[in-house]
Nucleic acid binder design. Structure first.
Lengths: 163, 163
DNA sequence: TCAATAATGGAAACTGGTTGTCAATATGGA
DNA sequence: TCCATATTGACAACCAGTTTCCATTATTGA
């Protein structure tokens, strides 16, 4: 046991990684906030935009569990949003020939329109955000984030485990 | 107005930026999840760990609004965590000579111990996470995230605004 | 000095996510 | 075929954050 309060002096890499984690937290918070702001005029939020995107990108109606997967959240969480989006006219429920109980969610004209507008807004926003940043740097960042994401799948190392 | 459903064909940079945003969302989710997992044995969560860190790094007791700022969340959100952390013995309230109502939050022995342990766990975790990744790539990623964070401060561009 | 304003804490309502439970529907294997 | 198991939807409880409103305490300027 060392005497100092700080148990271990972390290596530079550990320090940069810690800073990346904190940066991800901050950026995430801002992205949510700005995303909400961006699509508010369309009566959307980031989460609802994401749900519209899940169906729009799939190209055909999708069931709630499918939408949950592509939103990266739980089935029940997605259900909540889907109910709200149906209530507000962005989605409509269609009968599912393959499953009596599990309805499909399809974009209405309103939903399709809102999504197209959101995409257009996002292009403008992203262009401003990336101005002056070399494409190569952005690609590098994306690659690193993807690698970190993959590794975050593997379990947290146990204290002293050798597995 | 174009004929296709997709209004604009985004440039490569816009596409990479969009992917980065999605990656930030995914990584954030995993970081929270894994962070909670990492410090669960210490009876902490990611949020509470962060609150302990705010006071530990400051080096002396801090008021609730100060802690809120360094946690990057609202005053009331931080208050909730602080109440819980006091209730559970990680923090203790001290009178504030400069403000009768606004108490200071100080780490207890338990809080200090838990924070030191969390830091040690994090070092092990971060080391595994960064294994094989060039330090330079990590620095590049951090720099890009920081730049994006800065730019996210500026307001969302208005549709067609020239300001 | 004292009145206006700012900072602070408390509480409530809301958002968007989670987990857990239960009942209904599908599915697959003996 | 039919039973065990898996999916699915609804609902409730909870968590962690937000906003809003109000009462109290500090601060500041006329």
């Amino acid at each position: 046991m060392k005497k100092s309060t700080v148990t271990t002096r972390p290596s530079p890499k550990v320090r940069v990684l810690t800073d990346i984690m904190l940066a991800v937290f901050r950026v995430h918070g801002r992205l949510l906030e700005k995303g909400d702001e961006l699509v508010r005029p369309l009566r959307l939020t980031s989460a609802r935009w994401q749900a519209l995107g899940a169906v729009a990108l799939a190209g055909s109606p999708r069931s709630a569990p499918q939408i949950a997967v592509s939103m990266g959240m739980t089935r029940q969480g997605a259900q909540k949003q889907l109910h709200a989006l149906v209530r507000e006219g962005f989605f409509e429920q269609r009968s599912n020939p393959r499953h009596e109980r599990s309805l499909l969610y399809a974009l209405t004209a309103l939903g399709l329109h809102a999504y197209a507008q959101a995409m257009a807004l996002e292009v403008v926003w992203a262009r401003a955000l990336g101005e002056g940043l070399p494409l190569q740097d952005l690609k590098q960042t994306l690659r690193t984030l993807d690698i970190l994401y993959e590794r975050l799948d593997s379990p947290v190392p146990e204290k002293g485990s050798a597995s």
